[in-house]
Amino acid sequence: MTRSVFVINAGSSSLKYQLVDLDSGAALASGLIERIGETTGEAKHELPGRPKVVEQRVIPDHEKAFGWVLRQLDQHGPALDEAGIIGIGHRVVQGGARFDRAVLIDDDVAQQIDDLAPLAPLHNPANLQGIRSARATFMGYPHVAVFDTAFHLTIPPAAHRYAIEARIAAEHRVRKYGFHGTSHQYVSRRMAELLGRPLDEVNTIVLHLGNGASATAVRGGRSIETSMGMTPLAGLVMGTRSGDVDPGVIFHLHRVAGLSVDEIDLLLNKRSGLLGMTGTGDMRDVLQSAEAGIPRAVEALEVVGHRLRGTVGAYLAHLGRTDAIAFTAGIGENAAKVREVALAGLEGLGIVLDPERNAGRGERRISADGSAIEVWVVPTNEELEIARQVAALVDAG
Rank of each mutant, 00 (worst) to 15 (best):
E263C: 02
Q112E: 15
Y186S: 03
M191A: 15
L199C: 12
I325R: 06
T137H: 10
D354M: 10
L209C: 06
S242M: 02
R339Y: 02
T380W: 05
Q72G: 01
D108R: 13
A120R: 05
T149S: 09
A110M: 14
R271P: 00
G220I: 06
D106Y: 05
R241L: 11
R296V: 13
D369E: 15
S4Q: 11
Y141T: 03
L253N: 04
S242G: 04
G140T: 10
P48A: 13
G87C: 07
D395T: 06
A126W: 13
I168V: 15
G345C: 04
L346T: 00
P247V: 11
Q72I: 01
I264E: 08
G210K: 09
E291P: 00
A336H: 04
E299P: 00
A169F: 09
G96H: 09
V378N: 03
P142I: 07
L122D: 05
L47R: 15
E225S: 14
P157S: 13
P156D: 02
G360S: 11
L346P: 00
Q18V: 07
G221P: 09
I224R: 01
V202R: 07
E63S: 14
M228A: 09
V69Y: 07
L236H: 07
P118L: 10
R132I: 09
V206P: 09
Q75T: 12
H184Y: 04
L22T: 03
M191F: 01
S133Y: 04
L308T: 02
